[in-house]
Simulated assay, not measured.
Amino acid sequence: MTLLLVAGGFWQDEIDAESFWGRTGVLDGLRAHGEVLAPERPRRARSWAAEGDFLANLVTEPVTVVAGSNGCSAAARFAVARPQLVERLVLAWPATAHDPEVDGFTRDALRELGADDDTVEALLGGGTLRGVGDDELRGLGMPVAVVPSEPENRMHQRYTVDAIKELTGATELPGCPEPPMPAFQPDGFVHSVVQFGLSRA
């Protein structure tokens, strides 16, 4: 089974696949167990649908998708649109949506980076995950796992994990700090992903 990694970040030039998965040791750890794709997400995409389409165009056979932080929205959008290409879905440290304070400074940051009002509202919209309705999450048919951020923080709050579990029946994997936080250690995360993502059960 091939793993497709979707990095976090939200229009931030300083966060990419290398900083999120490469330098943190996740990529090397997972490559010891099989084929791993870790593409760069489109820079400053104006919709989550565009990000989902980008991911769908990378593969022709079903993959296990492992997404982090805001990358969870891109991955979920992919899984909703092309469920036949997503065998399993891991939503790690899912970014919290609809927190007024978080949305406020995110809205300001997007505007400073050149997003117009329609783009900002489209990117911030959705349900539990930005860009995806809760009914769409509830309709996912593949096995889903979720990794909480521990300790939780304002960008990655516990209630988001609980909502995803309720909507999808997701398996909760052991929590840890999200990369590229200095406290992140890859070994436990890699082990959990391998056990869930490569399992044939």
Rank of each mutant, 00 (worst) to 15 (best):
T2N: 10
L5I: 07
V6H: 10
V6M: 08
G8P: 09
W11G: 05
E14Q: 15
E14I: 04
E14L: 09
I15R: 11
I15Y: 15
D16Y: 02
D16G: 13
W21C: 01
G22V: 09
V26C: 09
L30V: 00
A32L: 12
H33F: 14
H33R: 14
H33W: 12
P39N: 05
E40M: 03
R44F: 03
R44M: 12
A45C: 11
R46M: 07
W48N: 05
E51S: 10
A56S: 12
L58E: 10
V59Q: 05
V59H: 05
T60F: 02
V63D: 08
T64R: 01
N70D: 11
N70W: 11
C72A: 02
A75E: 08
R77V: 01
F78D: 08
V80M: 02
A81S: 14
E87A: 14
E87N: 09
E87H: 12
L89E: 03
L89G: 04
L91W: 05
L91S: 04
A95S: 14
A95F: 14
H98D: 15
E101N: 07
V102K: 00
T106D: 03
T106Q: 13
T106A: 10
R107D: 14
E112D: 15
G114M: 09
G114Q: 13
D118Q: 12
V120P: 06
E121H: 10
A122E: 14
L124M: 11
V132M: 06
G141C: 02
P143S: 09
V144T: 12
V147S: 06
V147D: 04
S149C: 15
M155P: 00
R158A: 12
Y159A: 13
V161A: 09
A163W: 03
A163P: 05
E166Y: 03
T168W: 08
T171Q: 15
P177A: 07
P180I: 06
M181D: 15
F184W: 03
Q185H: 07
F189D: 00
V190H: 01
Q195W: 01
F196E: 01
L198P: 00
